[in-house]
Design a protein around this nucleic acid. Structure first.
Lengths: 192, 192
DNA sequence: CATTTTTTGTACTGATCAGTCAACTATTTA
DNA sequence: TAAATAGTTGACTGATCAGTACAAAAAATG
């Protein structure tokens, strides 16, 4: 009861996510957030309490949308190598095409001091763990079907691939050298 | 001529480096920098001009000290695998032992928006390139001596290893799971 | 010793920060 | 329609920000 909200929570968190994604937590101002979300200060604080709580929501939303989409992509049909190649190629193209070089919000949050404690860190950990699990599942599958050599523990292989993947996204932050990124991809696939 | 400085530039930049390393660029305040360096605002600004210029100096200093030390470690005697294992083990131990989880300053700079443009980005790029080159040299050496299989381009192998290395440092930011980090190491070494 | 040059310490600046508050508006409920 | 409830608005707060101004202090130069 009472006056209804004039905005959709999802849309507002999506907008806030964009701000944090572009600027990081520290550099994002509440003014930026108001401008992008279209909300006044009062509404923003009434709905989310603080800049940091909104940040948590944004990271959560990132996991629910972008993170989930990536996991879904990995679950599509095709050989294991094809799917992993698809994922990395998609990231290379997306990162290089983005003039703001925002990269991966979860990775950004992991690196920024503000995201290394409390709820944000927990969200990031979970997102990392989800990817690890999906990759491990894929490697296990590939080993079972004979597509991949089965001489090494799937979890180890998955974790190494995941590391190469995050390293790739770090490199993509500062380099324009597509060939370097493609080398990372080829090497990571060859290491399976 | 004129009054001599009461401080050593190196010592001051070292102190500033610690601040930026712990807090990142945005969250580090000029007050933090004054407190840690022991300089007054006047001296700091007279000597370095701005917070951002001091940041540049700090990143440069990081490359000159920590970065160079790491490259030197890779050049020590021992088999290629031994040296690479040493490097990763050292990083795992160091990162997990650091309560502040500062990680690698160059990597932090690469992900923070402030470090993705201008001189700081150039410094980070160079540091990445230096490591790539040293790794490539090591792989080439290993392939020549027969320690490593020579069926893949050394540069590709080096780049993939480098990516896994940076990914490792990202993971170490949010996880305490030493086994997960060791898996990354073992997998990266197995992929050589 | 007086002048020049540079550093140092500190008080100060305007801007901007995250967050608050009270008046006002819109809706539900009785 | 009147009371209750919740959302919106924009001005406001004190704190803190990066950076500056300036006078005092310390050295070099003549």
């Amino acid at each position: 009861m009472g006056r209804p909200r004039e905005f959709s929570d999802h849309a507002v968190v999506d907008a806030a996510m964009e701000v944090f994604w572009e600027k990081g937590y520290e550099a994002a101002t509440t003014q930026d957030l108001c401008a992008r979300t279209g909300l006044g200060r009062g509404s923003l604080y009434n709905a989310f309490g603080s800049k940091h709580r909104l940040y948590e929501e944004a990271v959560r939303r990132y996991a629910e949308t972008k993170g989930a989409a990536q996991l879904a992509m990995l679950a599509e049909p095709g050989s294991v190598r094809e799917r992993l190649r698809e994922m990395m190629l998609g990231v290379i193209d997306a990162d290089l095409a983005d003039p703001g070089r925002r990269g991966c919000l979860a990775l950004n949050a992991a690196t920024e001091p503000s995201g290394r404690t409390g709820d944000v860190a927990a969200l990031v950990r979970r997102q990392f763990a989800d990817l690890e699990q999906e990759l491990c599942h894929l490697v296990t599958l590939g080993q079972r079907t004979g597509e991949l050599p089965a001489d090494r523990p799937p979890l180890q292989v998955a974790r190494t691939f995941q590391s190469a993947y995050y390293g790739l996204r770090v490199l993509a932050k500062v380099t324009d050298d597509r060939n370097a990124l493609l080398d990372v991809m080829e090497g990571a696939l060859a290491a399976l």
